[in-house]
Simulated assay, not measured.
Amino acid sequence: MKRLSISSLAFAILSFGVSAVFAAQRPEDQRSPVYGVKLPEDYRDWTLISVAHEAGRNNDIRAILGNDIAVKAFRAGKRPFPDGSVIVRLAWQYQSSSRNDTVFPAPQSFVAGPPTNIQVSVKDSKRYAASGGWGYGQFENGMANQDTMLTQSCFACHVKLDALEKNADLVFTAYSQ
């Protein structure tokens, strides 16, 4: 009888654990609030558009990738971007590399440290008409950040580009040759 009880308890604990893992990965957690943007599955295989370093509070290093539609538009200088364009910005902590600096005559090497977040911009002029045709999402550890205020701040920041450059189509990045 004790064996059965211990087995039942172990099964219950295992079942609860598996259920908790799947509950933590609900499909709605995979989409950003406001826009419903998802992290594209194959984004790490996309083409590099540019890199950037943002100093100040963020102090990160970034790689900006695009799907085939976005890359074609970047290369052609086409604005506005066509629907279906997806731009992904990966960010890591910007940190010095003491390992690399041991080889150089002076400290000079900086590298990508731990990841901070991934931001995704999706062009769909009908679905996201209220935000200039772009939908936004931010992801940490593969999960969509569910902070509505954060997600809404994406468009609020990108729209400032219109005051500076009408032909930017709300995109900060330029294609690096």
Score class of each variant (00 low, 15 high):
Gly66Ile: 01
Asn58His: 13
Gly66Tyr: 01
Phe74Ser: 08
Ile69Ala: 11
Ala76Ile: 09
Asp68Gly: 13
Ile61Pro: 01
Arg79Asn: 08
Asp68Cys: 12
Gly77Trp: 00
Phe74Thr: 09
Asn59Ser: 14
Arg79Ile: 00
Val71Gly: 04
Ile69Cys: 07
Ala73Glu: 06
Arg79Tyr: 13
Pro80Lys: 09
Ala63Met: 15
Asn59Tyr: 02
Ile61Arg: 10
Asp68Gln: 14
Val88Leu: 12
Gly66Trp: 02
Leu65Asp: 00
Ala76Arg: 06
Ser85Thr: 02
Val71Asn: 08
Arg79Lys: 14
Phe74Val: 12
Ala73Ser: 11
Val86Asp: 02
Val88Met: 09
Val86Pro: 00
Lys72Gly: 05
Phe74Met: 14
Lys72Gln: 13
Gly84His: 07
Arg79Gly: 04
Val86Gly: 00
Ile64Pro: 01
Lys78Asn: 11
Arg75Thr: 10
Arg79Thr: 04
Asn59Leu: 11
Val86Arg: 00
Ala70Val: 12
Ala63Gln: 14
Arg62Phe: 03
Gly84Ile: 06
Ala63Cys: 11
Ala63Phe: 13
Asn59Ile: 05
Gly66Asn: 06
Gly84Cys: 08
Ala63Leu: 14
Asn67Gly: 05
Gly77Glu: 08
Ser85Lys: 01
Pro82His: 07
Ala63Lys: 13
Arg62Ala: 15
Ser85Cys: 06
Arg75Val: 13
Ile87Glu: 01
Ile69Tyr: 03
Ala70Asp: 09
